[in-house]
């Protein structure tokens, strides 16, 4: 199972990263490279869309935490879109629901971002 990672940046400066497939010890480096690449390109406000993620383990969590550390160093943000209970459960078990902003949809994340400005 391949991991597909795509991204686009909205007019508002929010970079949406859509991830599809299984994020584990084998595929997580690809997501890590993408996050590092985006930060290196000056994209510091990231939204990772997890709706098509079929599997996530702690390696994937580690990559997301690493991405968060990187963007925070530039006063940026890394938030998530996720409504899948099986994925949310992993964030809850590890206490990471307190670390990441988690939204129900990209639209909701964009709205909150506009509201916070």
């Amino acid at each position: 199972m391949d991991l597909k990672v795509n991204d686009y940046t909205t007019d508002d400066g929010l970079t949406v990263i859509t991830v599809e497939g299984e994020i584990d010890v084998y595929t997580a480096p690809r997501l890590r490279e993408k996050l590092i690449d985006l930060v290196n390109k000056g994209k510091f406000h990231l939204l990772v869309d997890m709706e098509k993620v079929e599997f996530l383990d702690s390696t994937g969590l580690g990559v997301l935490v690493g991405g968060l550390k990187r963007v925070r160093a530039h006063d940026g943000s890394l938030e998530l879109v996720c409504t899948q209970e099986r994925i949310l459960k992993i964030f809850r078990i590890t206490g990471l629901t307190k670390v990441f902003g988690i939204h129900d949809s990209i639209a909701e994340a964009e709205e909150k971002r506009k509201g916070a400005k």
Binding site: D57, S58, T59, L61, G62, V63, V65, G66, I90, I93, T94, G95
Partner: peptide, 17 residues
């Protein structure tokens, strides 16, 4: 550092599940 954090998370996931 991230690798270490990940492994700690792994044990947290195992004991949680």
């Amino acid at each position: 550092a991230l690798g270490d954090g990940t492994a700690d998370l792994g044990l947290a996931v195992i004991s949680g599940l």
